[in-house]
Simulated scan of single mutants.
Amino acid sequence: MTYGFETLAIHAGQDPEARTGSVVPPIYQTSTYAQDGVGQPREGYEYSRSGNPTRDALQEVLRALEGGRRGLAFASGLAAEDTLLRTVCQPGDHVVIPDDAYGGTFRLFAKVAERWGLTWTAASIHHLDTMRNAIRPGQTKVIWVETPSNPLLGVNDIAATAALAHDAGALLVVDNTFASPYLQQPLGLGADVVVHSTTKYLGGHSDVVGGALIVSDDELGERLAYHQNAMGSVNGPFDAWLTMRGIRTLGVRMDRHCDNAERVVDYLRHHKAVSEVLYPGLPTHPGHETAAKQMKRFGGMVSFRAAGGEEAAVRICESTELFILAESLGGVESLIEHPGRMTHASAAGSPLEVPADLVRLSVGIETGDDLLADLERALG
Rank of each mutant, 00 (worst) to 15 (best):
T198Q: 09
D266Y: 07
D255C: 08
G236S: 11
R341S: 15
V314E: 14
I125A: 05
M231G: 11
A356I: 08
D157V: 01
I143A: 00
G364R: 11
P280G: 07
A179K: 07
V314D: 11
M254H: 09
A230F: 09
G44M: 04
Q294A: 02
A261D: 03
D255V: 12
P137S: 01
I247K: 04
A80I: 04
C258W: 09
A261I: 11
G246P: 06
E376W: 06
M295C: 03
H126C: 12
A162F: 02
H127A: 14
H271N: 04
G349F: 12
R305I: 02
V332R: 13
I125K: 00
C317M: 07
R132V: 08
D192C: 01
A306E: 05
R245E: 10
L375M: 01
L329P: 05
L371P: 03
F323T: 01
Q59G: 10
T290C: 12
L224E: 01
G138F: 03
G380L: 10
E222D: 14
P237G: 06
H94R: 06
A326N: 06
R136Q: 12
K272M: 12
L189A: 12
A159W: 02
V88D: 00
Y45T: 05
A12F: 10
A313S: 04
G103I: 01
